[in-house]
Amino acid sequence: MHAFPEERVKMTLVDLLAIPSPTGYAHRAVDFVEKRLGSLGLETVRDNKGGLRVTLNGKNDRHHRYITAHVDTLGAMVKEIKPDGRLKLTKIGGFGWFSVDGAYCRVHTRDGREHSGTILASHTSVHVYHDAEKQPRSDETMEVRLDLAANSAEEVRKQGIRVGDFVSFEPMIEWTETGFIKARHLDDKAAVAVLIELIAAFAKSGRRPAHTTHFYFSCYEEVGFGANSAIPPDVREFLAVDMGALGSGQTGDEFSVSICAKDSSGPYHYGLTQFLVRLAEEHDIRHQVDIYPRYGSDASAAVRAGHDVMHALCGPGVDASHAYERTHRDALEQTWRLLDAYLMTSLPDTRESVNDGFAQRTAARA
């Protein structure tokens, strides 16, 4: 297996997190991935939606694999410029307003300017508003306080700000001495960083994966249709690499790779999911099998779109998903190891059980 390049993954992740990429405005992050893969001498292709695909030729070119991670993140758009110059927003992606109360943000204008600001409730000052603590955080009460000397809608418009401008949330990145990475948008840039460096490891080592594998970096996952089209016809296995959701009632943690058995779209493909579990057991990879009741992925989107593929989902455990998130370098390493093992191993013949296939391989080695 390829050794986990912790420092490379760390640098790539920090660089990615610093790039604003709310869904619909993710081109800068795609540019970053394209440049990084291009520096390895790899040919990349963009589809009409703006996603990026790179292919590694494998030993088996008859049955292909498709592995995705998404560069797009949560964000917002300007919904209204209020008479006092503050901005009302509309959400991009599924998050609660509580999770961005007090967050720093940037407004990206159509003419290329960027303006900083803070997302606040309209009744934030406890010295002025009796209901500051209890005011609901909602579409109607949340607003952007711009860092501009502009106190009217007209003055704000003079700065190039218009309805429909994208708003990104500052990531607030910190990598602790204890190995934790804290930031917004670890969903899904943690997985993207792992995949970029894993592709680089294969390119540099000259090793070929067991199957021809397409890696796709999608840019509309947060709104449900990131990787549900333009899938090559030879693809048989579809693996989404996305965060594992942690919390009460979940089995995952910040130190393991999570393998999803079921989310809001229903169960994932039993054979492919079991294959990932057996690989983790066989290679002593720390993992947890989990169920995400309020979650969907690029893999579930592809199946819903009608693609005839076996679909599965895995990724690093991430705490406080869709808020100020946190994971640990160990979860990144375990995700790397599982993906590396998966790329180098063929799924047993689907006409036999996955368990039997592993038993046969184990007996053959003995």
Rank of each mutant, 00 (worst) to 15 (best):
M1L: 08
M1G: 15
P5R: 06
E6C: 07
E7F: 08
T12I: 11
I19W: 04
A26T: 11
H27K: 15
A29F: 13
D31H: 09
F32E: 03
V33H: 03
R36N: 01
T44E: 14
N48I: 02
G51C: 10
G51A: 15
G51S: 15
N57L: 12
R62A: 14
Y66H: 15
I67G: 02
A69I: 06
A69K: 06
V71H: 04
E80V: 10
K82Y: 07
D84Q: 11
G85M: 11
K88L: 14
F95Q: 00
W97D: 02
V100P: 01
D101T: 05
C105R: 00
H108P: 01
R110C: 02
R110H: 14
R113T: 13
I119N: 07
A121C: 14
S122L: 12
T124E: 14
H127T: 03
V128H: 06
Y129R: 03
E133N: 13
Q135D: 07
P136E: 07
P136L: 10
E140D: 13
V144F: 03
V144N: 03
L146Q: 08
D147H: 08
D147N: 12
A149I: 03
A150F: 01
E154Y: 11
V163C: 05
F169G: 09
E170I: 04
P171E: 05
E174V: 13
W175C: 15
L186M: 02
D187M: 01
I199S: 03
A200V: 10
A203F: 07
K204D: 09
S205D: 03
T213W: 01
F215I: 11
Y220Q: 14
E221Y: 12
E222P: 05
V223N: 06
G226K: 13
S229M: 12
E237I: 09
A245Q: 08
A245F: 13
Q250P: 01
F255E: 09
P267G: 00
L272W: 12
Q274G: 09
F275P: 05
R286D: 15
D290F: 04
I291A: 00
I291W: 01
R294P: 00
G296N: 04
A312L: 00
G315L: 04
G317W: 01
V318W: 08
D319T: 01
A320I: 04
A323R: 05
E325L: 01
T327A: 03
W336T: 03
L338E: 03
A341R: 02
M344Y: 00
T345C: 09
T345Y: 06
N355T: 10
N355R: 14
G357P: 07
F358H: 05
Q360C: 02
A364Q: 09
